[in-house]
């Protein structure tokens, strides 16, 4: 069955792969994410990214357990799928389903006219981050380049 054509490589830029981000709270981290994404994609509005991510968290935390969160939302001016990968220097409270603090995040922003393909992608991401040994390696990365290379190469391995 042909799966989604959206590989991690095509949605994640090295510039949005951030290692050891300092973060004190869930809100602060979402702000950082919005700011970094908007800096890299000027057509996107920082406030809108932040507000939509926060609104999604209000429906229920995107912390999927074991220290991992996948914040996601749709965006109006978004023309392509945008990803961002972060590891945190200190785990933060994310109200995750298992109450464990989060230190590994993959953010997914999708266009307003999101299709079932995007739901599929979200599901694949959750599946990917269910891999304990991958998550362990990601957490051990010392700089953003390593982190980027690791996540992109993990993609090729699994195919």
């Amino acid at each position: 069955m042909p799966t989604s054509t959206l590989s991690i490589e095509s949605i994640l830029a090295p510039e949005l792969t951030l290692c050891g981000v300092p973060g004190t709270s869930k809100k602060r981290i979402l702000e950082t994410i919005a700011e970094r994404v908007a800096r890299f994609y000027p057509e996107l509005d920082e406030n809108q990214i932040f507000n939509n991510l926060v609104a999604r968290e209000r429906l229920g935390s995107t912390g999927i357990g074991q220290g991992i969160a996948i914040p996601h939302c749709r965006l109006e001016d978004c023309k392509r799928v945008v990803g961002a990968l972060l590891t945190l220097s200190e785990p933060i409270n994310f109200d995750a389903i298992d109450n464990e603090p989060v230190d590994l995040l993959f953010v997914l922003l999708v266009p307003q006219n999101a299709t079932s393909e995007h739901l599929e992608l979200l599901s694949q991401l959750a599946e990917k981050f269910n891999d304990r040994s991958l998550c362990k390696k990601l957490r051990q990365c010392d700089d953003s380049d390593d982190l980027y290379n690791l996540i992109v190469s993990s993609e090729q391995e699994s195919q």
């Binding site: 429906l59 229920g60 935390s61 999927i64 996948i70 979200l122 599901s123 959750a126 269910n130």
Partner: peptide
């Protein structure tokens, strides 16, 4: 759990 209940969790009052 994840296969049965799905990837994410929403509050019941959503």
């Amino acid at each position: 759990d994840r296969q049965f209940f799905g990837e994410f969790v929403l509050n019941g009052d959503a």
